[in-house]
């Protein structure tokens, strides 16, 4: 298997006619097994949309006649059609979300066990009958992210960073070969962000391919050897993360680059923050 992910000529348009928004424009991408790749760009640049296409949660444009996505040599979608057996595909690819997407009223352990749903018999999963061995495996996964002592607690009682680490444990139990992390640290404080990024990097060490979309370039350069930079749905840079100097970012993004370099300007000036926020909302509705 030479590719973990192969994407050729992927386009995505939301809406029709004059209101059409190009969320993705002619994306071509090859990622080898075991890579850890950062996906950077401002809000609305298409990072999430790209990840959701790889996960098979979204379909590319049909008319473009291409839009091929392969994961582990198996076709996820082409020509705007998601392949059959998407459940198996989803089970092999696991996703981590900005808002963690845990079931808040269930215990931490149960949330982790839910990662097994795509692996075990439907009736057993539906009845929630997880075996002793599976529960032990879930505890081991929790231990790897330092969360095993919270196993009995409800997910809603945890902080954001802790919930995200539980979500990572869920992907471990799922034993996926590819992890897609969609803004996993965007709503976390710096200390929690570090811990979550470290957990992802450790998982990557064991040979699992990780793609992580990030808002801040500093995390990309520190944890990911390779970066794909996006702007308005286009891939504007694909290469070594060390090349992403502030000067180069300004060249790529112009004024928007401030948002990517730790958002320094926003915290300094309250008026600026209001402006930036409205800008973000506009971009979010556009993408």
């Amino acid at each position: 298997m030479t590719h973990s992910i192969r994407i050729a000529g992927l386009n995505k348009t939301f809406g029709q006619g004059s209101k059409a928004q190009h969320a993705l424009r002619d994306i071509n991408l090859d990622i080898a097994p075991g890579e850890m790749v950062a996906l950077i760009g401002a809000s609305g640049s298409g990072k999430s949309t790209l990840l959701r296409h790889i996960a098979g949660l979204e379909r590319g444009d049909r008319k473009s006649g291409q839009g091929l996505i392969e994961v582990h040599g198996r076709e996820v979608q082409s020509n705007g059609r998601i392949q059959r057996g998407k459940r198996q595909q989803r089970a092999d690819t696991s996703m981590i979300f900005q808002q963690f997407n845990l079931v808040s009223r269930l215990s931490v352990l149960t949330n982790v066990c839910l990662g097994l749903l795509g692996r075990i018999a439907e009736w057993r999963g539906s009845a929630g009958l997880f075996s002793k061995a599976e529960k032990i495996a879930a505890m081991e996964a929790l231990d790897r992210v330092g969360m095993s002592r919270f196993a009995a607690q409800r997910a809603s009682t945890l902080s954001g960073g802790q919930q995200q680490r539980v979500a990572i444990a869920r992907t471990l139990v799922q034993s996926a070969k590819l992890i897609l992390a969609d803004e996993p640290i965007a709503s976390l404080d710096p200390a929690s962000s570090e811990r979550v990024m470290r957990a992802l990097a450790e998982i990557n060490q064991s040979g699992i391919t990780v793609i992580v979309s990030l808002h801040q370039v500093s995390y990309a350069t520190r944890y990911c050897p390779r970066t794909l930079a996006m702007r308005d749905g286009e891939a504007v840079f694909d290469g070594e993360s060390t090349a992403l100097t502030p000067d180069f970012l300004t060249e790529l993004y112009g004024e928007d680059s401030e948002e990517l370099i730790l958002g320094k300007k926003r915290t300094q000036d309250a008026g600026e923050e209001v402006y930036d926020h409205s800008n973000e909302v506009a971009l979010a509705t556009a993408g």
Partner: peptide
Amino acid sequence: RPVEGIRATGAGRLQEVIF
């Protein structure tokens, strides 16, 4: 969002509703 989180693990429709 939690429903999508469960869908992403490869769970079925019934399991999305149950969990």
